[in-house]
Write a protein that binds this DNA or RNA. Structure first.
Lengths: 151, 151
DNA sequence: CTTCATGTAACTATACATGTTACGATTCAG
DNA sequence: CTGAATCGTAACATGTATAGTTACATGAAG
């Protein structure tokens, strides 16, 4: 049972998981988080393990164990989460050869690198501006809006 | 003989090829371009074929055949070349599920999409600002600089 | 001590650019 | 008209990273 997989969705996954954990009292198991995400529990452990190494979450084994957030939602930005995941490559496009001798290719690389570095800087700045608390607030707003629509 | 391949380098490749063609009198064969790029001639034909469909280059078969630029260098931007290649995905990172019912995931997607769309818009704007003529001029500058350094 | 849960290793599945081989189609030299 | 040169394209192989899966060891709670 494989879904269409073409891009790294770990940042999206951990955000989804962390917000569910923030809305939930007590630890959540990999099994439960996997159901929320539509993902395999082992993949959840694998990915959340990176956040554990960064000190953002903690895990407890055994009965009534699971994952807990061990940081203030207001202090954790998307930028930090991207870093905790090992700063995976942002772009699916790149230069053919990063250190060419050919002057033509050097000119091409310089032009492309300039554009990519600008776009990457903008993206990471935007990531730094958004915290888990911001996302939790946006979720709460959407939740209230849905209730209002239902009434 | 495989090199480290992780990203789509076709834009980089066609830029490299087009600048070599611009510096060269008469058509260039896929074989010759492949040597310039360190790429397979069949891959060159495959990729240049997309530019041919976009009307940016033409190919002639048989003796003394090969590829020619059929557009004004000043009018061809990186944006156009990206479009000619089929607008391949720019980001290697993305949402896990593009149309979730879960409000938590909707909030996550909204935040990520906002950042990605801004970065993509910036990148494509930068691409639109750079033409083949600009790159050719930058190459000429680098070429003159190297000569000056050698003397 | 049994059960639940994480920690991890090992293997598989998928997508996609790229590499490679093979052959047909076309153009030109002689 | 024959043959070499060259593009056009199909078919298949390769490499890589995330994600899925299976299996089992480790540790905590009742």
């Amino acid at each position: 049972m494989y879904s269409y997989m073409k891009r790294d969705s770990r940042l999206s996954s951990v955000l989804h998981a962390l917000l569910h954990m923030a809305e939930h009292d007590g630890p959540m198991t990999s099994e439960t988080l996997g159901q929320c995400l539509g993902a395999n529990p082992v993949v959840v452990r694998r990915t959340m393990g990176l956040l554990r190494e960064a000190g953002l979450v903690s895990a407890e084994r055994g009965h009534s164990g699971g994952w807990r957030i061990s940081a203030d939602l207001k202090t954790v930005s998307l930028r930090q989460l991207h870093a905790a995941l090992g700063e995976p490559a942002i772009f699916a496009i790149g230069n053919r050869n990063e250190t060419p001798e050919c002057l033509v290719e050097q000119a091409v690389n310089a032009a492309l690198d300039k554009a990519f570095l600008e776009a990457e800087a903008l993206l990471l700045d935007r990531f730094a501006d958004v915290t888990l608390a911001d996302l939790a607030a946006d979720f709460a707003r959407r939740h209230a809006e849905r209730r209002a629509t239902r009434d």
